[in-house]
Design a protein around this nucleic acid. Structure first.
Lengths: 176, 176
DNA sequence: TTCTGCTGTTAGGTTAACTTAACAAATGTT
DNA sequence: AACATTTGTTAAGTTAACCTAACAGCAGAA
């Protein structure tokens, strides 16, 4: 891999924290019809002061505007971002839940950690894959069924095609 | 979702940065047979001082030990972690590349951003899925073939089952 | 109207991860 | 032997994201 690829982690347009301030806003707007700083603070379980600072940064960046009564609203830019992140989260969650059979709580928790890090194209491709894999297409249905019956027999071998090192899956069976 | 789920992001045992110091070590050990601070610094393109500090933290946490000549080595704990992360990266990369058809560079870059955030169980499930999906099983082969021929016809509709909001995939087609 | 409580902001402090600058110790060169 | 380079460490500064404490403004209750 390119030796500085790892730095892309820091180069996301908005941090995990900022994205979640926006997500909280979206959720609270849907719930209550309005959002104030204190609502976000309670929702995210952080201090009002911290929220105040982050929100002002987001205002400066053009994702949020504030009205006379200190109620917050999304700008078009903010709405677009929320839409992207929500879609991506939804798709990733669906994948974890419907394909990998994680519980819906775990699926959401895992999606939440990575949703803002993946590029649009990855989300789109995943979307496309799910659109097919979860469809009623004959091949998809049979594939799902066969996978359910399939149990990866990694326990017997020292190494397999997929993991070059000690078998990851084998190791996992001791732990679980 | 549980309202504090998002905080799990910060609660990973090792940060993105720390994990990548260990990954760099692994890579350099494989390449040269030894690692010093300056090697890691050059590899990660950060300052020697920064590496020095991070490495000492990792020594305190028990992932690395230092010999008389300031060469670094993994402890068993470090080896186990590297093994886990590498396996997870490999699986995720494979998924992005072989299932979602991302280029191998993009697949690795995307995997790199999220590999340390996903739980073991997620990696295992993905492993299991790939083990089947990429296998020679009749159903898997047909599914792969059918998916290749499939193009998600999202353009015609306002919304679809998968994305509740504006169609994510439709939006993406304008951009690309 | 005074008091209380809620809300937002500011000030000052912490931690993690970077930076540059300065320096000490070892190593290599001439 | 003297000088230059490499390497690791330390000091001091930056940014992001949190914290607590203090305080100002407002709004409702006694």
């Amino acid at each position: 891999m390119l030796k500085s690829t790892w730095k892309q982690f820091d180069e996301v347009e908005l941090t995990h924290s900022s994205v979640h301030h926006l997500m909280a806003m979206h959720e609270l707007l849907k719930q209550n019809g309005y959002v104030r700083g204190v609502d976000i603070a309670k929702y995210l379980k952080i201090s009002r002061s911290s929220v105040s600072i982050t929100i002002h940064k987001l205002i400066k960046k053009g994702y949020i505007k504030e009205d006379e009564n200190k109620f917050y609203h999304f700008t078009d830019k903010g709405k677009a971002l929320i839409n992207d992140v929500l879609s991506k989260r939804r798709i990733i969650t669906l994948f974890f839940e419907k394909v990998l059979n994680l519980s819906s709580e775990k699926a959401e928790a895992e999606a939440c950690k990575i949703e803002h890090l993946l590029e649009e194209v990855t989300g789109q491709r995943l979307m496309s894959f799910l659109g097919f894999y979860l469809s009623n297409a004959e091949e998809a249905q049979q594939c799902r069924k066969a996978f359910q019956e399939f149990s990866y027999a990694c326990g017997q071998v020292e190494s397999c095609d997929v993991c070059e090192l000690d078998c990851y899956f084998a190791g996992s069976q001791e732990k679980h």
